[in-house]
Computed example of a mutant assay.
Amino acid sequence: MSTTEHNIADDFATPRRDRLRRAFFRFSQSKLSMLGAVMVAAVIFFTVFGTVLAPYPEHVAGGVDTASRFMPPSVAHPFGTNELGQDVLSLVMAGTTVSVLAGFGVVLIGSVIGTLVGAVAGFARGWIDEVLMRLTDLTLTIPGLILAMAIAAALGSGFGNMVIAIALSWWPGYARLVRGEVLAAREEVYVTAARALGATPKRILFRHILPNVVSPIIVKMSLDMGFAILTVAGLGFIGIGVRPPTPEWGTLLSVSRSYMPDYWWTAMAPGLAMFLAVFGFNLLGDGLRDVLDPKARR
């Protein structure tokens, strides 16, 4: 009996392994997708270890060295120093942790809220669908950055408040995406079979429908990471996000603009880091979209 069950499990696992192998092969065939994966891996590495590996940790902690202010790029300071004599490279490396974690928090919270709203609206339909979608449309009429600025100003500065403020303006896109996917999935044969077997609506939605519509959600999350990082930097640039001395890319750019173009290196490092992070996540998202697109499967 156990041998039979083991064989059945192997029969189910083999197609899954084959799909994963084919998906990885398609992903690896795209040079841009692999470049995006490498760039994202580097960003994640500095997100985890950037503060530890910073060559001048005392500058990350808020220390100043006025005797070394505005030094141009050199061997000791590859990206120069700022108006306080702090090593710009160390600040950018430590700022990766704040910027990327904030972007990930925004995308995670926004996707969870939007997925729940869209799934309930698409599955329940009727007046529940109307109420939830009109609320979504109302939120979409307000520009996301302006809404985030208003919420952040009301909540106050700080890492957590900034993430919550942006996430509350981020969920409508996921709600509309998931609602459309659920509306299509609820008419599939496996949903009809689950109803015939007596499955509850909650079980049908969360055990049968949502697992089958997760692919477009993952693709959108990967594509949204870059835009979330830009939004976090935007709030930091105008002074609503994380405040100094905590290093954050937008805050570093905001301070450095006062010294442009004479001390251009103070803005080059955070701007370059932001560009590479956004570019990498966009390339990775495009690659995942090609792999997870059901029409591309063979």
Rank of each mutant, 00 (worst) to 15 (best):
A185H: 10
E83D: 10
E187F: 08
R195S: 07
M93F: 13
R134K: 11
P143E: 04
G198C: 05
V106Q: 03
L89E: 07
G198W: 06
G118D: 10
L168I: 10
V131F: 11
V191R: 09
G198D: 08
L116E: 11
I142V: 15
L183M: 15
T81Q: 07
E181Y: 10
A94V: 00
M162G: 09
L147E: 05
W171E: 03
A121Q: 04
L101D: 03
I109H: 13
K202H: 14
I142Y: 12
G180H: 09
M162V: 11
L145E: 07
M93Y: 04
Q86D: 09
T139L: 13
P201M: 08
I151M: 08
V131Y: 10
A185K: 15
V182H: 00
L135E: 06
L135C: 14
A199G: 08
V131G: 00
E187C: 11
M93N: 03
G158R: 06
Q86V: 07
L84F: 13
P172C: 10
G173H: 04
G122I: 05
I146P: 07
R125K: 12
L183G: 01
T200Q: 08
N161V: 08
E130N: 14
Y174W: 06
L140H: 02
R195F: 00
A153D: 04
G160M: 08
I166H: 02
A196E: 09
V92R: 00
L89I: 03
T192E: 13
E187T: 11
T192W: 09
S90T: 06
A193I: 14
A152L: 01
E130V: 14
L177M: 15
M149E: 05
G144D: 12
L101K: 10
F159S: 07
A165C: 09
V88N: 03
A124I: 12
L140Y: 01
D137W: 09
S90Q: 04
L168M: 13
G85H: 01
G114V: 06
D129N: 12
L108G: 00
G114R: 07
F123R: 03
S169Q: 12
I151S: 10
L138T: 14
V189K: 15
V107C: 03
F123Y: 15
V117T: 14
L108F: 10
T141N: 11
I166D: 05
G95M: 08
G110S: 03
V120F: 12
A102D: 03
T81E: 02
G110H: 08
L183Y: 06
T192H: 14
D137T: 03
I128Y: 02
E188Y: 12
I109T: 15
K202V: 12
P78L: 02
A196K: 09
P78V: 04
G85V: 03
V106I: 15
A165N: 04
R134E: 04
M149G: 02
I146M: 13
G144Q: 11
A94L: 02
N161E: 13
T192K: 13
